[in-house]
Design a protein around this nucleic acid. Structure first.
Lengths: 199, 199
DNA sequence: GTCTATAGGTGGATAGAC
DNA sequence: GTCTATCCACCTATAGAC
């Protein structure tokens, strides 16, 4: 792997291990196996490194979400979006934590927070569109699509962040995946129109 | 206020403002208006200060949760627990962030994580009990109480943490409270037995 | 592109006076 | 209990050699 890519990779690892408080250029350099100053040939400064990490995280996340569009029905596309969300969180926990679990103010990236905010809004719009499809198709009750989308986001984010924070350590990977299914089932059940709720 | 209490208060404020990375004994001392060394008369070291803050957070949270028991029916008690959860998150955002949004490993409090884990488990058991009540009363479908409780926790935690991370800034306090009601409604709807789902 | 050397800063913690 | 003085560790970032 190229040095630059390795720097980004080890940055993510260190960030997850030690948090923002323990993240340092020296720490990254040591993991990569170069001197601390070498990093400055690849990134202007510490903020630029973090900003790049954040940006690449959003790019990857966007690709994951796009998988959802392969679904053939509105409900299936929403379901796939849910799976894509958890796939990303579990396969890129460092990126997920940086993107969704770190307060903007804590990042201290004034310049990049604009871009991050735009990315976040874009993600939310994608979700709102999936919800609108479901409402139009009659599989969801007629409710404010934005409230509904926010409810879905909060629910999946809550589960993902409890998992990544280590608060569900007694669940193994398989049990967690099962709970994901349970969660997606509950979301669908809670949004179905009254006519669809009889079993 | 006593110096010790003021130290704890300002510690919470600083933690919320700057995050773990920006939290320092000197920073706390400056806010309190004493020298940095004065803090060491009240707390053995930085970890002890954080541990105390965490402990007091769980105590306060426990008192909030106890309000739920004033509800007259199982469903009302669960609903009140939901409200207590959001009340605590909104009124004690610093404590909430420290307790539920900071990875244990990032805190670096090996000694205290035992106590924190026990507290967390206690909270979860409380929620499981409320769910069991609802199932026994027939207002919830017969499902694994622990899965159900986890679903509820993840959902309310997701909403609270998005809020505290500043990702829902376009919602004012009133709109957010309204969405809380929406969320609690969705949770109940998703867990109701099939027989109760006809409108 | 990577190194060593180094400047300049921040932060945790202690010693000892008051 | 609070202060000043101080030590030491660690951090970001730059300069200049290779």
């Amino acid at each position: 792997m190229e040095t630059r890519a390795r720097i980004l990779h080890e940055s993510g690892e260190l960030l997850r291990e030690k948090g923002m408080a323990g993240f340092s250029m020296r720490g990254v350099a040591e993991r990569v196996g170069v001197s601390a100053t070498a990093l400055y040939r690849h990134f202007e400064d510490k903020d630029a490194l973090l900003a790049t990490l954040l940006e690449e995280g959003f790019s990857t996340f966007g690709r994951y979400l796009m998988r959802a569009l392969a679904g053939k029905t509105p409900l299936e596309r929403l379901r796939r979006a849910g799976h894509a969300y958890f796939d990303f969180a579990l396969e890129h926990p460092r990126d997920y934590a940086l993107m969704f679990m770190t307060p903007c103010r804590e990042l201290g990236l004034d310049s990049v927070s604009e871009g991050a905010k735009a990315r976040m809004d874009g993600t939310f719009v994608f979700l709102v569109d999936r919800v609108k499809e479901c409402i139009a198709a009659g599989v969801f009750a007629e409710q404010d699509p934005r409230s509904t989308a926010l409810h879905i986001w909060a629910t999946v984010h809550g589960l993902a962040s409890l998992r990544l924070n280590g608060q569900l350590e007694d669940l193994d990977e398989r049990a967690f995946r099962q709970h994901v299914e349970f969660t997606l089932d509950r979301i669908e059940a809670s949004l179905a129109p009254a006519s669809a709720r009889r079993r």
